[in-house]
Design a protein around this nucleic acid. Structure first.
Ligand SMILES: [Mn+2]
Ligand SMILES: [Mn+2]
Ligand SMILES: [Zn+2]
Ligand SMILES: [Zn+2]
Lengths: 143, 143
DNA sequence: CTTTCTTATGAGAATGATTCTCCTTTAATA
DNA sequence: TATTAAAGGAGAATCATTCTCATAAGAAAG
């Protein structure tokens, strides 16, 4: 992803362009396995040694707020971030911190159809997230 | 739920019976909307004013470990606990902390069938949790 | 019922991811 | 280039949870 594409994403969303924001958004895109704030900070500090953790958290919130990234909850007390914006679910390793994207349009359709038919009284659905928990049998590090 | 039923649950799982454990397990069952540790502590302290927060967290972990309760993750940095042990999913309010149980055997079947047909290469599924996010349209407090 | 042994509890300190405060710097705009 | 609102930096604060370690109390045996 070129610098200018990242810059434009920020501008499109009305976010002031700063080196910190550029670096953070670029980092999440590069570190493509749902990095933590710490992962992002480590990566960025190579080229940008003085960035503050507070800034990173503030920028991450701003990017998530504007829909440029998504937050991914985990079993542990650590937030993870996702630059992949299409509707998708996640595979969670039960024996490690690995999280992988799971795309399945057929599943989305099935779910949508199911809840069209079977409304939930007193509840208006806005989003469905399927957490698929299990074990990765290929021991490859996440790409 | 009678005292003796609670006592027997502990004994069945090989947990030493203590007043603290009795009180905590009873509290989660009574406070039936996915209480936090704090909710549980507040409830218990009425009759058991000296219980320590550390004890509560340790007992909650022990009960979850033995399968007498389940932990429920939320969007916020607070764990919630569930005494309802049948397989079920959860309705999460997007505008409050309310969480309600959602039972749907048809959904479970559909999901099971889907993933039987459509295996995920390199991954062995152990559990599926559907997070249903939306708005409660009846403003009733959780029962 | 008492001893013994093991495990649980209580009080308070520590942890650690995240947020806050407050002052300084900077991007955008004219 | 000057103006101004917004963003960044440093470090303290927060707060749910965990840890430490001294004390208490179940359970099993005698
Ligand atoms: Mn924590
Ligand atoms: Mn925390
Ligand atoms: Zn993802
Ligand atoms: Zn539940």
């Amino acid at each position: 992803m070129k610098n200018n594409e990242i810059r434009n994403k920020l501008i499109e969303k009305g976010l002031k362009v700063t080196p910190q924001r550029m670096a953070i958004l670029e980092a999440i895109i590069k570190l493509n396995n749902h990095p933590t704030a710490e992962n992002i900070i480590d990566y960025i500090r190579k080229n940008h040694p003085n960035i503050s953790t507070a800034t990173v958290y503030k920028v991450l919130d701003a990017l998530a707020e504007k829909g440029l990234i998504k937050k991914v909850k985990t079993e542990k007390d650590v937030m993870r971030y996702d630059a992949f914006l299409e509707k998708h679910h996640h595979l969670y390793a039960s024996d490690s911190d690995r999280i992988e994207d799971y795309l399945d349009d057929e599943l989305n359709e099935i779910l949508e159809k199911h809840f069209e038919k079977k409304c939930i009284p007193g509840f208006k659905i806005e989003d469905l997230k399927l957490q698929i928990i299990g074990k990765f049998t290929d021991k490859n590090a996440p790409k």
